[in-house]
């Protein structure tokens, strides 16, 4: 059973000049799949993610998560935002436990898990630091831990490493690969970085802009576990050439 099902989904943002952000998009994501949405800015890939997160309502079509229509945001779909969106007045620990705490999960239940996740993202020594005292990459790791602590059925990541410098981005990609190998959560990953999409995902949905559509789906069969060393393998480069050609067609 697929955990995510977009069926002929369209999204129009109303306004003086209404914008058709998504046009007749269909997409199925299976349990434990890692799917990347790849495309230029303005192609509606974040809109697609926001629909699944429950932040926006679809204009047309159907959207099911675990067989039920998506109507609102919820902890079963953990979101990692582009700029982390941590609460600046809470320290790392309190940012991470915010979800279970407001849901009324018993402390004895969430505390060990939160501690384990902080260790998993390498921030156990920074539990008392405020977000502003952290680097961009560390903030994003808090964002990942905060989403994972709720044990979500899916992880929705909206260009989470887009604002990071190249080196930090590489280490974050490695971290995400490690975490995903361990937890095996379903992931929808939005990016405009071709390398990132190939490295991380099982399947890439290439999107075009105005109106936003999925123009091609490319399965990535690189062996797992992967690491950033895969970036230079011949198979990787072949995928990249293929996608570059595709995106060139998309642009012209």
């Amino acid at each position: 059973m697929g955990t995510v099902l977009f069926q002929n989904v369209s999204k129009t943002f109303p306004g003086v000049r209404s914008v058709r952000a998504l046009d007749d998009v269909s997409l199925q994501i299976g349990e434990g799949d890692f799917v990347a949405l790849l495309g230029p800015s303005g192609c509606g890939k974040s809109t697609l993610l926001n629909l699944l997160a429950g932040f926006d309502r679809l204009s047309d079509g159907a959207l099911l998560f675990d067989g039920r229509p998506v109507t609102r945001p919820g902890p079963d779909r953990g979101v990692v935002f582009q700029e982390a969106a941590l609460f600046p007045w809470l320290d790392v620990w309190n940012n991470v436990i915010f979800g279970p705490k407001v849901q009324g999960v018993p402390k004895s239940e969430y505390e060990p898990r939160a501690r384990e996740l902080l260790r998993l993202v390498g921030l156990d020594a920074f539990a008392e630091a405020l977000p502003v005292q952290l680097s961009g990459g560390m903030r994003q790791r808090v964002g990942i831990a905060r989403a994972l602590v709720m044990n979500p059925r899916a992880l929705l990541m909206d260009e989470p490493f887009g604002a990071l410098d190249a080196q930090t981005r590489l280490s974050m990609q490695q971290l995400l690969l490690d975490v995903w190998e361990t937890l095996g959560t379903t992931v929808l990953f939005v990016t405009h970085d071709i390398d990132e999409a190939i490295l991380l995902s099982d399947r890439i949905c290439v999107m075009s802009a105005r109106p936003g559509r999925i123009v091609r789906t490319i399965p990535i069969t690189l062996p797992r576990p992967r690491s950033i060393a895969s970036l230079t393998s011949p198979a990787f480069v072949a995928y990249k050439a293929d996608i570059l050609a595709e995106m060139n067609v998309v642009h012209h």
Binding site: G32, D33, F34, R119, G122, Q174, D178, V179, T182, L183
Partner: peptide, 23 residues
Amino acid sequence: SVTMEPAAPTDTRAPAAPAYDAP
């Protein structure tokens, strides 16, 4: 698609203290 057994985070035997980016 790679199907994995979703494991509870508490059961993880994660790599110890990964040295990702510095503060």
